[in-house]
């Protein structure tokens, strides 16, 4: 079920890019070939998917723990995780600011670059002010909860490399090496593997 939900979200992000894909198809077919445009799109899909899959499945807290296990100092790993934690909050706040300004007649006008930039000021200033205030409140709360009191912080949750993680790492490294070899010696791939579409 969780997988299904994630898939739906992934699909949504891919859908959002469909316009870009269309452009890619049109231009690449004009200047190159249709097959080239398809391979281009596949590349982008893989890139976007891996990013979105990463952030849809890995919680910032776990990311932090894995960074720590890579010997990255706690303070740096923590602030990294914290900045991810507040992305949805700040997005919601931005929406509320837009709503509040629209309610007093604010319109995102069409116009030149400068007038559009000027038009963003009523949104940006409250956003910056509110975010700074929030940052202060968070810092206060961290200080009040013993943050940074000792160097020898303990961890209630830890993640460690299990056997399956090592296997996965090995497989990934194998793929990587294979990719490099193919790049250097393209002849090891049998000819029937290549197929080209041409228009």
């Amino acid at each position: 079920m969780i997988l299904g939900k994630l898939f739906a979200q992934w699909l949504k992000s891919i859908k959002g890019m469909s316009f870009l894909f269309l452009l890619l198809i049109v231009f690449n077919t004009l200047f190159d070939s249709f097959s080239y445009s398809i391979s281009m799109i596949l590349r982008i899909i893989i890139m976007v998917s891996s990013f979105s899959m990463f952030f849809l499945t890995v919680h910032p807290d776990d990311l932090m723990l894995s960074l720590i296990s890579l010997k990255i100092p706690y303070n740096i790993a923590f602030s990294f995780a914290l900045s991810f934690r507040f992305v949805p909050t700040i997005a919601m706040e931005a929406q509320n600011i837009i709503d509040a300004q629209k309610s007093r007649g604010y319109e995102l006008e069409q116009g030149g670059l400068i007038s559009q930039a000027k038009n963003l000021i009523p949104l940006l200033i409250p956003l910056i002010v509110c975010s700074m205030k929030r940052a202060f409140h968070i810092a206060e709360s961290l200080d009040s909860r013993a943050f940074g009191s000792t160097k020898n912080r303990t961890f209630y949750y830890t993640i460690s490399y299990a056997k399956k993680d090592w296997i996965l790492t090995a497989i990934l490294i194998a793929f990587f090496i294979f990719g490099i070899i193919v790049k250097i010696f393209p002849n090891i791939i049998p000819a029937w593997f290549y197929f080209r579409l041409s228009i």
Binding site: R134, I138, A146, G148, T150, R153, Y156, Y157
Partner: peptide
């Protein structure tokens, strides 16, 4: 602005962890 962790349990653990208290 005070809740920072991914679940309630970790949230409660945060303070004692900072103090270096054992598991």
């Amino acid at each position: 602005n005070q809740l920072l962790a991914m679940n309630v349990e970790r949230e409660i653990a945060f303070g004692p962890e900072n103090l270096g208290i054992e598991w």
